[in-house]
Structures are given as structure tokens and as C-alpha cells.
């Protein structure tokens, strides 16, 4: 289902959170609303859901103006950061809640719930209570609960933020696959740029209530429209007075013919990636991002003098 947001504004008291924002979200896409705290991304999501009302502007779901339609009639699925489980109900009753509201038959509900439980791999936990689940399991239950009513769009508000780092990665991948299999239009709100780039087809970067840029993640990374986009989406360092990505730089031996002579001050090994901090003798420190193998070959150590230059194949 496609979503159209037309010149939407929202203020809380004197705080202007969203300013005349317009956006198109195509059917079946996985869109990430990305931005720093206070950028308005959660507010926008809640406006789409109908949990909050717009001050001005209109919202269209599949060509229908739903601006004044209450949340319960919009057929959306919503997942909160804190999972919002119905604590007094079992996992299966949680998932069945929306179906009961729709007054479906008991047998129909039972089979749908069973189907969803196996989809989210919680079949063994059907009769447990939410407090007996781990964070990742609780979030999967929340997803199943939202999917039960066959929503036209799935809205996820920082759903992975409360999970442990390892679990977060697993659930993320799993959600990506799920969305792909089901084809349901999905919008994810996150402040984690890596997460957004990993799961989304389309990135919407928000800053202070307005859109900085919209596009596929790789395009936004390589061709940022503004400085804000550039610095938000990836690491930056300075070389030769210019702001540049650390992986667009390389180190070559002092004996090479081109590049600026610098002294290595620190080598940070992060396993898959190695960061080499260099001093150009002037006022600045620059750091270079190398792959594990490049670092291994170069055998870098603090105190060495090497040459620093931009890689030939970079965009800079």
C-alpha cells in the first residue's frame, strides 16, 4: 500500500517538530526514517499511524485521505520500542487480540495464531506470559500480533533499540527477510545509521523536522546532498583541508612517489577493520580505515613514517 504525506506539520507546545513535510512511500517498500533525536521521525510515524493528530497537512493511504480517520480504522500494524506486550495475556492471546476485535471465529483465530507463531518461531511459547520471554522473543511476539490483523502497512518505532547488540543484528536480518517474503509496506524509525542502511530499500534522512534527502542507501552514502547527510551517514575525517571518508584514503610506504608524508600515532584493531591514526605535522589528525588484510600486509605501528593519499578509485 502506498503512503502519501502532504505538507504535514506538527508542534508540541512551542516545539515545532515537523515542518510542512511531504513524502511518498511506494507499496511494498522497506523505508527507514533516519535522523538524530528530535528530528521528528517518531512523530511522523505516529502521525501515519494516527496515534497523534496532524496540525496541518494531509495523509493518504492507498489514495484514500485518512487524515481524520481514527487509528483503529487505518489497518496499520505498530511495534513499539518497549514491545508493549499485554502483560496479563499469554503470548497466543496477545497475538489473537486484534482477531478477537474483528470478531473472527474461534477456530479461525486458533489457526491464524498457530500460523503466526510458527512464522515468528515462538510456537513453543504459546502459553507463556510476556515476562517469561527474552527481549528478542517479545519483539517477535509484538510483530506477530501486529501482522495478525493483516495490516496494509507495518510501522516500527525503534524496535531493536532495547535489544542486546548481538540479538539486535539477528532480529534485524530476520525482519528484513520477513518483509521481503510478505511484501508488506514497512516503515522503520531508527537513529542508527548502520541499521537503516542494512535493512532499508529507501532512506529518508530527517533533521529538525524537515527532510534532508531521500533515496536508496548506497546512493545517499556515495552522493550525499548536504553536509549533514554526509556526516550522518558515515564516518568522516579531514585530509588536506577537505572532509573525506576514511576508507577513501590509503597508506603507502614513505618511498612511494605520491602522497603526503605523515607519522602513525595509533593503530586500532577492530577485528574486521583497522583504524590508523596519522599526524600530518600541521594541526590535524587524520584517520584511515583499512581492511584487515591491508593492515596485515602493511604491518603498521606507531612511530612509522608513511605516505597518505586518496585512493584512485574513490569518489572524492
Amino acid at each position: 500500500m502506498s503512503i502519501t504525506i502532504e505538507k504535514v506539520s506538527k508542534s508540541f507546545g512551542r516545539d515545532e517538530v515537523l515542518r510542512s513535510l511531504s513524502l511518498e512511500i511506494p507499496t511494498g517498500s522497506f523505508t527507514a526514517l533516519l535522523g538524530p533525536s528530535g528530528s521528528g521521525k517518531s512523530t511522523l510515524l505516529r502521525l501515519i499511524a494516527g496515534l497523534t493528530k496532524v496540525d496541518s497537512g494531509r495523509i493518504w493511504l492507498n489514495g484514500v485521505d485518512v487524515t481524520d480517520v481514527p487509528v483503529r480504522e487505518r489497518q496499520i500494524g505498530f511495534c513499539f520500542q518497549n514491545y508493549a506486550p499485554f502483560r496479563h495475556l499469554t503470548v497466543e492471546k496477545n497475538i489473537a487480540y486484534g482477531l478477537k476485535v474483528q470478531r473472527r471465529g474461534r477456530r479461525e483465530i486458533a489457526s491464524k495464531v498457530e500460523e503466526l507463531l510458527s512464522l515468528v518461531q515462538l510456537s513453543d511459547f504459546a502459553t507463556r506470559y510476556p515476562h517469561q520471554l527474552s527481549g528478542g522473543q517479545a519483539q517477535r511476539m509484538a510483530l506477530a500480533r501486529a501482522l495478525a490483523i493483516e495490516p496494509r502497512v507495518l510501522l516500527l518505532d525503534e524496535p531493536f533499540a532495547a535489544l542486546d547488540a548481538q540479538v539486535r543484528g539477528e532480529v534485524r536480518t530476520w525482519v528484513r527477510k520477513l518483509q521481503h517474503d510478505l511484501g508488506i509496506t514497512t516503515i522503520l524509525v531508527t537513529h542508527d545509521q548502520q541499521e537503516a542502511m542494512e535493512v532499508a530499500d529507501k532512506l529518508v534522512l530527517l533533521n529538525k523536522g524537515t527532510i534532508e534527502q531521500v533515496g536508496p542507501p548506497s546512493q545517499m552514502y556515495d552522493e550525499p546532498a548536504t553536509d549533514f547527510v554526509r556526516s550522518f551517514l558515515g564516518p568522516l575525517t579531514t585530509f588536506d583541508g577537505v572532509s573525506i571518508r576514511p576508507h577513501e584514503l590509503e597508506l603507502v610506504p614513505e618511498s612511494a612517489s605520491s602522497g603526503q608524508v605523515v607519522t602513525i600515532t595509533d593503530v586500532v584493531r577492530l577485528g574486521f577493520e583497522v583504524r590508523v591514526v596519522v599526524d600530518d605535522g600541521a594541526d590535524g589528525f587524520t584517520w584511515v580505515q583499512l581492511t584487515h588484510d591491508e593492515a596485515l600486509l602493511g604491518n603498521y605501528a606507531p612511530g612509522q613514517r608513511v605516505r597518505l593519499r586518496i585512493r584512485r578509485e574513490s569518489h572524492a
Partner: peptide
Amino acid sequence: IGDSQEQTAATLGAKPARIFFTITLRSVA
């Protein structure tokens, strides 16, 4: 506990009265 449970129930289609009796009251029972 906040009101995120009530908001979720609303997204699942429940009307205010239903939310009150099935979620609000039960959660503070």
C-alpha cells in the same frame, strides 16, 4: 507502565471502551 499497551490495542482495531475493559483495567487489576 505507560500507555503504550492502550495505543497498541487501538492500532489493532479496538474501540476506547474495549481498550478500557480489556487492557487498562486488566493491567492494573
